[in-house]
Every structure is written in structure tokens, then in C-alpha cells.
């Protein structure tokens, strides 16, 4: 762990796709134990930033430092092994594998994991997510909300220090959304760090300790939610679109 409690840091992250600059020199650091909400209009570069910070994209400029080690350019599984877990904007499960198998996979990638131990943890995780009765179903046969929960569970099986959740509330039934928020808060209290991207402002404001706003590939605001809400630049970015 680095001395100042910073868990993961993207420094001057730049990423271009063809002529579009999706991230333009973004500085983004997350301290251990924080719960960061990341918002911004469509196309502002949130998902790109997450993809860079979790190793799914290699930045064109800048670097990613994870627990004091530079990791940009390394494959995504290295990030996972170092305690970085993520969900995807459109849920990406192992469709033709059972619910239980979906959770077994990340557990078994850990060195010296035993199948029995991982299975026990996976079942405990399913209990926690209220999915235990579905363990033998194919993941593709779950409802949208259940799939989001399962994807969260798959992250947890990595026993991660930090979780990046990309639009966890999108298209989720309000009832299940509350359930999801409760789980996130529980996990946060238990010491996990979160970065949550979503358009559901109400939910984001409800849970986040710190709010980061992006627009046109840049970070335009960063601070406590109450302060950011009234920030002129933020209001302009949202109104300007």
C-alpha cells in the first residue's frame, strides 16, 4: 500500500479512438475505503476511464498506478489478481455456465485455491445476494436484475480491494435497485472501496462520499457531493448538452 492511502491512481490518462479523444489527460485517484460516484453526460469518457483503470484498455498517454506499482499496459487479469474487480456496462456473464460456475471461475483463478473452499465461498456469496435457489440455472436464463447481482457476486469472489461498477442500476427494477444499494453499502462498511458510474443521480447521491464529474473527456469537478451539485461548471456541462 502506498503511504498516502491511495489505492489506484490514473495519472494524466489519455485515450483516443480514431479522431475522438475519449480521455484527455484525466487525473483520477481513489483512496482506500472511499466510495466514489463517477458521473457525466453520455460520451464524456466514463467507461473509457474505467476500462483504462481496470486494464481493459491501454492508455495512449499517462499511466495507471495500482498500490504504488505502475500497471498500465499489463493485461486485465493482472489487475484482477491485484484486487481490482469490475462489472460491465451491459452485463457480461458466462451465459452458458451455471450461476454457481460463474462464481467459481474468479475464485479458482486465485493461486492455491481449493475447489471445496471456493465452492463454499461461492454458496455463501449466493446467499448474500439472494440467488442461492438459482445456483444450477444457466446465467443467461436469469432476469436482468439477477444478472446484475450475479455480476457483482463474480466481482466479490475475487475478494477485491476495489470494485468498479459500470452502470449497476441501469434497467434494474426499483425494488432490486434498493437491494443492490443495500449490498453496496454493506460491502463498503466492511471495508471495500467502490467506484460507481451511473446516470441514476438519485442513487449515486445517496451512496457516494465523493463525486467526480466528467465532460468531453476531461474531469470537470471532484469533491463532496453537496459541493459538486452546485458547481457552475457541472451545471453548465449538463445544461450545455
Amino acid at each position: 500500500m502506498s503511504e498516502n492511502g491511495i489505492l489506484i491512481e490514473g495519472s494524466r490518462v489519455t485515450k483516443r479512438f480514431g479522431g475522438i479523444t475519449a480521455n484527455d489527460g484525466v487525473d483520477f485517484a481513489v483512496a482506500e475505503g472511499d466510495l466514489v460516484g463517477l458521473i457525466g453526460p453520455n460520451g464524456s469518457g466514463k467507461t473509457t476511464l474505467i476500462n483504462v483503470l481496470t486494464g481493459h484498455l491501454t492508455p495512449d498517454g499517462g499511466k495507471v498506478i495500482l498500490r504504488g506499482r505502475q500497471v498500465s499496459g499489463k493485461p486485465a487479469h493482472i489487475y484482477a489478481a491485484t484486487g481490482v474487480a469490475r462489472t460491465f456496462q451491459s452485463t457480461q456473464l458466462f451465459g452458458r455456465m451455471t450461476v454457481l460456475e460463474n462464481l467459481m471461475v474468479p475464485g479458482l483463478t486465485r493461486p492455491r485455491s481449493s475447489a471445496h473452499e471456493v465452492a463454499r465461498r461461492a454458496r455463501a456469496c449466493l446467499e448474500f445476494l439472494n440467488l442461492a435457489h438459482l445456483e444450477q440455472l444457466y446465467a443467461k436464463n436469469l432476469s436482468g436484475g439477477q444478472q446484475k447481482l450475479l455480476e457483482l457476486g463474480r466481482c466479490l469472489m475475487l475478494d477485491p480491494a476495489i470494485l468498479f461498477l459500470d452502470e449497476p442500476f441501469a434497467g434494474v427494477h426499483p425494488h432490486l435497485r434498493d437491494e443492490l444499494i443495500k449490498r453496496i453499502e454493506e460491502l463498503h462498511r466492511a471495508g471495500r472501496t467502490f467506484v460507481v458510474v451511473d446516470h441514476d443521480m438519485e442513487s449515486i447521491l445517496r451512496i457516494s462520499r465523493r463525486l467526480v464529474v466528467m465532460a468531453r473527456g476531461r474531469k470537470i469537478a471532484d469533491g463532496p457531493p453537496e459541493a459538486v451539485r452546485t458547481d457552475q461548471a457541472v451545471l453548465a456541462a449538463y445544461a450545455g448538452l
Binding site: 481496470t54 486494464g55 481493459h56 493485461p75 486485465a76 487479469h77 484482477a80 489478481a81 474487480a85 469490475r86 460491465f88 457480461q92 456473464l93 458466462f94 451465459g95 452458458r96 455456465m97 471461475v105 474468479p106 483463478t109 486465485r110 463474480r154 469472489m157 475475487l158
Partner: peptide
């Protein structure tokens, strides 16, 4: 099933 998700799971 999904290479990205597999990598994110540590494979």
C-alpha cells in the same frame, strides 16, 4: 463465453 469477463475474473 466472454473473453473480457474472463480476463476481469483473473483468467
Amino acid at each position: 463465453e466472454d473473453e473480457q469477463a474472463a480476463a476481469a475474473s483473473g483468467i
